[in-house]
Design a protein around this nucleic acid. Sequence first.
DNA 1: CGCATGTATGAGTATATGAGCAAGGAGTCA
DNA 2: TGACTCCTTGCTCATATACTCATACATGCG
Lengths: 105, 105
Amino acid sequence: MREELQRLQSEVLAALGHPNRVRIVEFLRSGERCVCEIQPALGLEQSNLSRHLKGLRDAGILESRKEGVSVYYKVSDARIFKLLDLSTGIIKREIKSRSKILTIV
Amino acid sequence: MREELQRLQSEVLAALGHPNRVRIVEFLRSGERCVCEIQPALGLEQSNLSRHLKGLRDAGILESRKEGVSVYYKVSDARIFKLLDLSTGIIKREIKSRSKILTIV
DNA sequence: CGCATGTATGAGTATATGAGCAAGGAGTCA
DNA sequence: TGACTCCTTGCTCATATACTCATACATGCG
């Protein structure tokens, strides 16, 4: 049971484990967007973007909605943003502690 | 600059994006442990475990300390646990919303 | 219908990752 | 020194991932 939960956890985390996917989710902080808006904003190749979006949706991070020809994506749970904010905090602390080591040297 | 931060973020998240690495970090909730304690607890092959630990350390998630023959690992930042807790919450909500869909069917 | 637009997918390639086995330090003790 | 334990690293195989190009699919419009 716990093992299964941990597997699912790692899937969510792995889904965010790519710079472009982090960028996508960050871009969606501003709200729901269609692929045609995300694409020029991030400058990704269309098919590539489509696959990243699929990965994020499969992991439960994004939800999609079709409207006419367009597909709109949004983040499914606001906690995703908290998760990204936490990782930012972790990184910043890490950078500080590493630069501290450098100044000693 | 932001791109660089996002790359680092994705590295941290990717480092946690594997079931066994989630298990390792969860095991370290109880505090600092040496490899020889982690190994039997998780039942991983030694070299395999060693590499996962290295990955987590490279990502800044773990810190290590050598004491005699043993190497002790611990989580470097308590926010890592918050991050895992958040991902658990996200998963649970996801499971609920999916089972809701199933009950309709 | 024919055609344009927005998005997804199949196929191919390059690279990355995870696993196991065997060998290599590094520390400890006799 | 030699033997032992604990941990890491080199090598290799299998699999997974990311990317691109071309193509398919769906919708809307004239």
